[in-house]
Design a protein around this nucleic acid. Structure first.
Lengths: 345, 345
DNA sequence: ATTTAGCACTCAGGAATAACGAGTGCTAAG
DNA sequence: CTTAGCACTCGTTATTCCTGAGTGCTAAAT
């Protein structure tokens, strides 16, 4: 991408017109259509330019007597140098904002709502990941007696995620004792994460019940934070179905192989994301995943307070309205960031 | 389904053979193939029987010179009277059990794992819902201070379902005060449901904060108990793609319109499920949803302890191996039930 | 009375062919 | 260097024809 072959102004205008026409219609665009569109040069002149654009690899010709189509490299040039980054138009903002305003109060809910709204807004598949946590910390906990031998451990974690876990008690206990223990644990464990809780464990051998509960909390936090990092939701598979590039079902199946496998998807996002740019665009084969060779990703991250949160992105065919998708992804990411900040505060 | 037209043994054997052949191959089955398969009657005899089976509506003929295909009614007859309910074969059990053995320790994780495993096992789309919460009576509650103006209300409901809700406080407060209020509310509200909590509200005008919280609890309980099972996960969209009935992308798009809309999906499951049977099979138009007219559902519920939990189901084309899908759905449902019992107790 | 062989008929699907037209590359004139 | 003109290419679509699996019906066999 660094070694992009530079183009003169006319070639740039033509390339831009090809991209814009093709993303709009999905049909290879010919010299005549461009001549009308640009209204500056004749079809013949444009044909000459098109030929050289094919030579340098920015355009492709599906077959000898067809129009031209941008190559991955062509899209790359467009995204890097030609695309006007327009701000999100007011109309779109007015459409999105209310949907994102009434976010649920829990993490999963925020991610799912965001994914839904974004998928609908860009008519493609959306992907939203949870904030990368540096280990889930305990914010508050409570113990509820179920019967003398069992207690329910309720934990409020960083992010206002509430989780419960049933404890089998090694000796009988009642609500009064549990409440007392809960009070003590609240004082001791507040703000600690899995490893810190584990270190704290087994301090006081005279209180085996307490040690037992602490151990359970530590174990729970460990598995929880492992899962939290992989929290990843997607939505809008149906939107891909009416794109002509997925008329062939095989293509879509390959894409879903990646998307429905959360692990793969997570690796992809991690590998693809370039923190240097506000919005990262990964085009076609740049994904380095053969199943996605005809897809592009538009990615960004949201921030939770000071620190980096998770990823918000869109996956669609390479023939995508990048200049429209990018600001929408940014907008949703911002709202996700502030919604999660609110939830996690 | 009650008014099913009864068939003599020969017609039954033929219908069964048609279903079995067709579900296996996906190709309309002709009299000759059946003659070889059954080896009891000639093709001509079978042709006569096929004609009457078409007349009574159990079979369809795609066009005059094609073989026969089961109609929704035909599948219904097959499922109700002809299907051998084989237990899950040992091989399949050995394949599924280990995947379901190492379940995550949280509710969402269990549902997602189950959906993944089931989708792969039946090569179709799987749907799993969270446990339906019975009475929405309060068992225990807690208040966590987020900042002076906001508090997190954590409620343990009947059935040990834990829910949280963020409160905006009309005046500033801190954790000490909130803990005191929580203690008081615990004593007062234990065992009360939405209407009882509402009746209790506004008792003490000298404690506006308390009244406010009680009102919030009442409101929450109301919407909570009204709300259907909100937690719905599905997996295996990719499995539908290689079914020939979804070669036409339009079909799939219609199905996903329903499946990706959790609300619709929840209503569908609620409406379709017949608690009288261990496994409910809903075939084609029986779903009463036009988008699913060429799909079938195989549903069952799992139990959490004593009470009914949520639904586990499979959605696939009507041409489905019902006799294989049903035991797999049951098996997964059982494991989900015990996994959730372990998580929630 | 039921079952079966035989046979003419139907009709979707595939292969072969033809016409179409959008778009090209090249050439020669402006 | 640009542009009009023109012969040519080749994918797409429509048309036709053929094939064969499968049928319904009839008449003979059981």
């Amino acid at each position: 991408m660094e070694s992009a072959i530079p183009l003169d102004t006319r070639k740039e205008r033509i390339l831009k017109a090809v991209v814009s026409d093709y993303t709009a219609t999905g049909v290879p665009v010919g010299s005549h259509a461009l001549a009308v569109h640009l209204a500056s040069w004749s079809a013949a002149t444009i044909r000459n330019e098109l030929a050289t654009l094919v030579d340098v690899g920015y355009l492709l010709q599906p077959h000898t007597s067809a129009g031209r189509v941008p190559s991955d490299l062509g899209y790359r040039y467009y995204v890097d140098f030609l695309m006007d980054d327009v701000a999100l138009p007011g109309a779109a903002r007015r459409q999105l904002a209310p949907l994102l305003a009434l976010m649920p109060q829990d993490l999963e809910g925020v991610l799912e709502t965001a994914a839904q709204v974004l998928a609908a807004a860009v008519d493609a598949l959306s992907i939203v990941t949870g904030p990368r946590t540096g280990g889930a910390a305990i914010k508050h906990l409570d113990l509820v007696s179920l019967d003398p031998a069992h207690a329910l451990l309720v934990m409020v974690l960083e992010g206002n995620v509430v989780r419960q876990h049933t404890l089998v008690l090694s000796r009988e206990s009642d609500q009064d004792e549990l409440s007392r223990l809960a009070g003590r644990l609240n004082a001791e464990l507040r703000g600690l994460d899995a490893t810190q809780v584990a270190r704290f464990a087994g301090d006081d051998p005279r209180e085996p019940l307490l040690a037992e509960i602490v151990a359970a909390i530590a174990a729970f936090l460990r598995t929880f934070s492992a899962r939290q990092d992989t929290l990843i939701v997607h939505d809008g598979v149906r939107n891909l179905l009416h794109q002509p590039e997925f008329e062939d079902v095989q293509r879509l199946e390959q894409v879903l192989e990646v998307v429905e496998e959360d692990r793969l998807l997570g690796e992809l996002l991690a590998a693809a994301f370039d923190p240097a740019r506000p919005v990262t665009v990964v085009i076609g084969t740049e994904t380095r995943i053969s199943q996605l060779r005809s897809c592009s990703l538009v990615l960004t991250t949201y921030r939770v307070g000071e620190s980096r949160g998770g990823t918000v992105g869109v996956l669609g065919p390479t023939r995508m309205r990048y200049e429209q998708v990018a600001p929408r992804v940014r907008f949703v990411a911002d709202r996700v960031g502030s919604a999660i900040s609110r939830v996690m505060s």
